[in-house]
């Protein structure tokens, strides 16, 4: 088991190495170089030379690459051009916000998706089933940024039940130890702050969780349908087990493998892809940081952010592979 994990971790090194080379080339492949792109219409020869000097773009390519690699291996992406802050520190500071949002979204997606898919499978070819299938098709077709706005309009602006943007009410004071608002408010034993943080999580969580919800429900339905027709389920029923026991021990457990896979893959995507939801709800996580950096052509942030999120993405996928082995003894043995 440990050997498997170590081998997979070692395989990640060439991938990340290759990605860093691609990012290096990509930014320098611009017509006129990064300085021109950065300055846009404000570009004058003097300012371009100034920027090139400041960021080392005037040095020979190979020197640039060596300095770049030396810094990347230390996970130093330099200063953000627009925020004038250390990129890595900023990424780390904002990451908890993104994790918190992704967890809320996953909680919603799993909590609704698995029961929905399960019930649809148990009632195959009924109106409930057709309804669930249709709903999940709509769920994967709805643009996140549209859903987010509609939720905001209905539940925040019209009904005034939930806050529109941000992670905490602006007036609330909370000491940040971990930057996870839920954890920090628990540490401070502040019930009001906890409730406030949760209220802020609901709408973005639903918006971000809808696509994974639809996918999880579909996979659960398909997987349960397959297991329901298996012989051991019939045997379990025939030997007089209660329906709930059959469902829990035989049906759900055996249909878990594809479900866990898809949950893992979606978690990786959420952690790295909350760009749109964070923008709609002004969440202040990594996604919003990167979306802003893309518009401002803040290359250090883009380079650092893409590397950081790619690492998170591949690590989460690795965890999924390891989880497989725990769930399915067949994989563990081979």
């Amino acid at each position: 088991m440990i050997r498997f994990v170590v081998r997979r971790l070692l395989l990640l090194i060439p991938i990340l190495f290759g990605l860093s080379i691609l990012l290096f080339i990509w930014v320098r492949a611009l017509p006129g170089g990064p300085a021109t792109a950065l300055l846009g219409e404000r570009a004058t020869p003097e300012r371009i030379a100034q920027i090139n000097k400041a960021y080392g773009f005037d040095k020979p390519m190979i020197t640039q690459y060596l300095t770049y690699m030396k810094r990347v291996t230390r996970f130093d992406f330099g200063q953000s051009i627009t925020l004038r802050k250390d990129v890595t520190a900023e990424l780390v500071r904002r990451f908890p916000a993104t994790i918190e949002l992704s967890m809320a979204a996953m909680l919603f997606a799993v909590g609704v998706g698995i029961p929905l898919g399960f019930m649809a499978a148990k009632r195959e070819r009924t109106w409930f089933d057709y309804g669930a299938v249709t709903a999940s098709l709509i769920g994967v077709s709805i643009p996140v940024f549209f859903l987010g706005q509609i939720l905001k309009w209905v539940f925040a602006l019209k009904l005034n039940w939930l806050p529109t943007i941000g992670r905490l009410a602006p007036t609330r004071e909370l000491v940040h130890h971990t930057n996870f608002n839920v954890v920090d408010s628990l540490l401070a034993i502040d019930g009001g702050a906890l409730w406030d943080a949760i209220k802020h999580l609901i709408l973005p969580g639903i918006a971000l969780g809808t696509i994974p919800l639809a996918i999880i429900a579909r996979i659960t339905r398909a997987s349960v349908l397959e297991v329901l027709n298996d012989d051991y389920v019939r045997t379990a029923r025939a030997k007089g087990l209660r329906t709930s026991t059959v469902n829990r021990v035989h049906v759900l457990r055996n249909s878990m493998l594809p479900i866990v896979t898809v949950i893992g893959l979606q978690t990786g995507l959420l952690l790295s892809g909350a760009v749109l939801t964070e923008t709609v709800f002004a969440w202040g996580g990594m996604g919003q940081l990167i979306a802003g950096a893309v518009l401002d052509k803040d290359y250090p942030v883009i380079q650092g952010g893409v590397m950081f999120l790619a690492i998170v993405f591949v690590l989460v996928n690795l965890v999924v592979d390891v989880l497989y082995a725990f769930i399915d003894p067949r994989i563990r043995v081979s």
Partner: peptide, 24 residues
């Protein structure tokens, strides 16, 4: 295949964003 491994290590929307950032 190694090149595709690298591209697949970046989630698609993020990859699209970084490409668009360069082109303008």
């Amino acid at each position: 295949m190694r090149l595709t491994d690298i591209l697949l290590a970046v989630p698609s929307l993020l990859l699209a964003l970084s490409v668009a950032a360069v082109i303008g």
